[in-house]
Amino acid sequence: MAKQNADITTIDLFSDEKRPGRPKTNPYSRSVQVKINKRNQVKRDKSNGLKRVEFKIHQSIIEQLEQLATSKGVNRSELIEALIVEALAKQQN
């Protein structure tokens, strides 16, 4: 009997073949992994003294912030933090 790739009735012939793709290395589904990673990130941020702030601003302001951040060589989060610190320092004077 010849072995054919489309033959699924003799599955024992194919048990030693490797399946294509990356092997599964984590027992959790992707959605569970994302939740675990996010929880760990929040714990890391909290231990570093960081607090999450969320707000909505117009897309044109985001684009301006992106351009400014790129020109200064920082990411948008660092730029916003620096702008807030600067504004608070001016407020105290």
Rank of each mutant, 00 (worst) to 15 (best):
I57P: 02
E86M: 09
G49K: 04
D12Y: 11
T25V: 04
K51H: 05
S15T: 05
V34N: 15
I61D: 13
L50P: 02
R44I: 06
S47I: 10
K38A: 15
V32T: 12
S15C: 08
I11M: 09
T9M: 04
A2C: 09
N37M: 01
I36G: 01
S15H: 06
K90L: 10
D12V: 03
L88K: 12
E81F: 05
I80R: 03
D16H: 03
T10A: 11
A69I: 01
Q59K: 08
R44Q: 14
L65N: 09
E86F: 09
K18W: 07
H58T: 10
E78Q: 14
P20S: 09
L13M: 01
L83I: 01
N37C: 03
K56L: 08
Q59M: 07
T70D: 15
I8R: 02
Q4H: 00
Q92E: 13
N93M: 11
Q92V: 06
I61Q: 11
Q41A: 09
A82W: 08
D45C: 05
G49V: 01
M1G: 07
F55Y: 11
E78V: 05
I57L: 14
K3L: 05
A69L: 03
K3A: 02
Q33H: 05
D45R: 02
I84P: 04
G49Y: 00
